[in-house]
Amino acid sequence: MNFWQDAWNVHNRNELSSFLAAASRDFAENPEAWENSDIASFLEAMGAWVQDCDGVFVRNGEPLPSADAWATVAKAVAAARVYE
């Protein structure tokens, strides 16, 4: 799995769900490939990337995510905390 390339190919809810399932499988099968192997460091890194990501979108010719996109990510993280 090429996470970076696969992430840029997510354009809808089903593709995101598939991407997350593949990421979960990859973590289970290749934990040594993950720099942030616990939830605390993963969330910290995710937050840091969100703060610094504008240049990534600009360099890739992509528009910056909308406020609604950021709110959806926040809701997904909050829901995953308790969702079974």
Rank of each mutant, 00 (worst) to 15 (best):
N9R: 04
S66Y: 08
G47E: 08
D54C: 01
A22R: 04
P63G: 04
P65C: 08
N9L: 08
A69Y: 05
D26C: 07
G47R: 12
C53F: 04
N12D: 13
A48L: 14
I39G: 02
S24V: 08
S18I: 05
V56E: 04
V77L: 14
W34Y: 15
W34H: 14
E84I: 07
N30M: 09
D54L: 03
E44G: 07
P63S: 12
S18L: 12
Y83M: 13
A80K: 03
S37V: 01
M46C: 06
A79L: 09
S37K: 09
S41V: 11
G47F: 09
P65W: 03
C53S: 14
R81Y: 13
N9Q: 06
I39F: 05
A48T: 15
D26R: 09
Q51C: 12
W49S: 00
A80Q: 10
K75I: 02
D6S: 14
S24Y: 11
T72Y: 07
E62V: 14
E84V: 08
W70R: 03
L20H: 00
A79F: 08
S66E: 09
R59T: 15
E62D: 07
W49C: 00
W34P: 00
D54P: 02
N9E: 11
P63H: 02
E84M: 10
E35D: 10
G47A: 10
S37D: 15
L16N: 01
W34M: 04
F3I: 06
D38C: 08
A45S: 15
E15C: 05
V58T: 12
E44H: 11
N9K: 02
W8E: 05
N2T: 08
V82I: 10
A33W: 11
A28C: 07
A74E: 14
C53K: 08
H11F: 13
M1T: 12
W70P: 01
G61Y: 00
F42Q: 11
K75D: 14
E35F: 02
R13Q: 11
E84A: 13
V73L: 15
S41L: 03
R25D: 13
A33F: 09
I39V: 14
A74S: 11
G61H: 00
E44A: 15
D6W: 02
V82Q: 08
V58N: 02
S66A: 11
L16A: 07
M46K: 10
A23T: 04
W4L: 14
A80E: 14
M46I: 10
A33L: 11
N14W: 10
D6G: 05
W70H: 11
A48G: 04
A74K: 06
N30H: 11
Y83W: 04
L20N: 08
P65R: 01
L64R: 09
M1D: 06
A67E: 15
E35V: 06
F42A: 15
V50C: 00
F19M: 06
N14R: 14
A67P: 09
P31L: 04
G61V: 08
K75S: 15
V82P: 00
P65S: 07
W8F: 10
N36D: 14
W34A: 01
F57W: 07
S17Y: 02
T72I: 01
R25I: 13
P65F: 00
Y83T: 11
R25C: 11
F42V: 02
W8H: 04
L43R: 05
V10G: 05
A74C: 09
A33K: 13
D6N: 07
I39P: 00
N36G: 00
S41W: 00
P63C: 09
D38A: 03
I39K: 02
D26L: 01
A76H: 05
V58A: 03
M1N: 03
